[in-house]
Simulated assay, not measured.
Amino acid sequence: MNSKDKIYTLPQLLEQVQTWRDQGQIIVFTNGCFDLLHLGHVDYLEKARQLGDKLILGLNTDASISRIKGPSRPLQDEMSRARVMASLLFVDAVVLFNEDTPLELIEAIQPDILVKGDDYAVAQIVGHEVVQARGGAVKTVPLVKGYSTTNIVKKIENNCNLN
Rank of each mutant, 00 (worst) to 15 (best):
F34V: 11
H38V: 09
E46W: 09
L39T: 15
N151L: 15
Q110V: 03
L88N: 08
R67L: 14
K154F: 09
S80I: 14
S64D: 06
M1C: 07
V115W: 04
I109S: 11
L51Y: 00
V42D: 01
L57A: 03
V138L: 03
L45C: 07
A63S: 15
S80R: 14
K139C: 08
A121M: 14
L37M: 13
N163P: 10
P111K: 12
F29Y: 12
I152W: 05
A108E: 12
M1S: 13
T101I: 00
A93W: 03
Q18C: 05
V126D: 01
L39H: 12
E46Q: 15
L88S: 10
Y120T: 03
S3D: 12
K4H: 10
G52Q: 08
E15S: 12
P102F: 10
T9M: 08
V131A: 01
N159F: 04
I68R: 13
T150E: 07
A82I: 11
V153T: 07
S64G: 05
P142L: 11
A121T: 11
N31K: 05
D118N: 15
H41L: 08
T30A: 05
P74F: 02
G146W: 09
L39K: 14
N158K: 14
I26D: 02
T149K: 12
A133G: 10
E15C: 06
D119T: 08
I26Y: 00
A133Y: 01
P142G: 09
L75D: 12
A137S: 13
E78S: 11
E104N: 15
L57E: 04
M79T: 15
V131G: 04
G127W: 06
I106Y: 07
P71C: 00
R81I: 11
V144T: 13
L96Y: 07
V131T: 03
D62F: 08
